[in-house]
């Protein structure tokens, strides 16, 4: 028997394209706007969300038959907050440098609607293994958009990728800057992320007409 059935594979692959959490489900937009000025921050956030969503989905899925429906949102919130805090504490004790890098993301992860969204929409109704795959798939889809947005914002806004100068030095005017090219300061600020996400949605919908709703 294959480790992943066809349905399992689609749990991972669907969120990458036709059921992308950011561009289709419109979940996790806030953090996509906030932290994509640099590619490095995008990657770190994507990995952190993958971890929390994968684990959280499993925990919620295991508890799905005993959670009282009236307080299920609070229970979900407690699970994700506790998970993030435990991870943060363990990192602080054993990988202090890493925890410093991640600490600014902790608050963003707890309040990330993609996490509550997947708990609510998937983990409450499915088994742990499939919930885990759903968590990984959705965080990959989320991370993919973050990386694309981060790539364009850092390249066009700062002329660098992962902090390395790609287009030359804007101050001493070398490389592309010698021809009169300037960094676009607008790409640095959060509204630029909205525009890049908008363009991604536009491209995606024009390639897959089935995604367009009838009016």
């Amino acid at each position: 028997m294959a480790l992943l059935t066809k349905k399992d594979v689609s749990l991972i692959s669907d969120p990458l394209a036709d059921n992308n959490p950011i561009t289709i489900q419109v979940l996790g937009i806030c953090s996509a706007l906030a932290i994509t000025a640099e590619l490095k921050a995008s990657v770190v956030m994507a990995i952190a969300v993958m971890f929390v969503l994968g684990m959280g989905n499993v925990v919620i899925s295991l508890m799905r038959n005993i959670i009282p429906s009236k307080i299920r949102i609070i229970v979900q919130l407690i699970v994700v907050a506790a998970l993030v805090i435990v991870v943060d504490q363990v990192l602080k004790a054993f990988a202090y440098e890493l925890s410093k890098t991640l600490s600014v993301f902790v608050g963003l992860i707890i309040t990330n609607c993609i996490i509550m969204g997947r708990f609510e929409a998937f983990a409450l109704a499915n088994g742990p293994w499939r919930s885990f795959l759903d968590g990984i798939g959705n965080s990959l889809g989320y991370g993919l958009i973050l990386v694309i947005v981060g790539f364009f914002r850092e390249l066009l806004g700062s002329g660098t990728l992962f902090g390395f100068a790609i287009l030359g030095d804007p101050i001493t005017k070398t490389g592309l800057y010698a021809t009169g090219y300037e960094n676009n300061g607008f790409m640095i600020i959060p509204p630029a992320a909205l525009i890049v996400v908008g363009i991604i949605i536009w491209v995606q919908r024009s390639r897959t007409p089935a995604l367009i709703e009838d009016n």
Binding site: N65, I66, I67, P68, S69, K70, I71, I74, V75, I78, A82, I85, V86, Q89, V90
Partner: peptide, 28 residues
Amino acid sequence: MNTDKNVYTVIFAGIMVVVVGSVLAFVA
């Protein structure tokens, strides 16, 4: 199991708080 009863909800919330609280306190 009927998870919609008020009594169940209150007991569940109580246990949850104690469990999560002790885990966090233990780790910290």
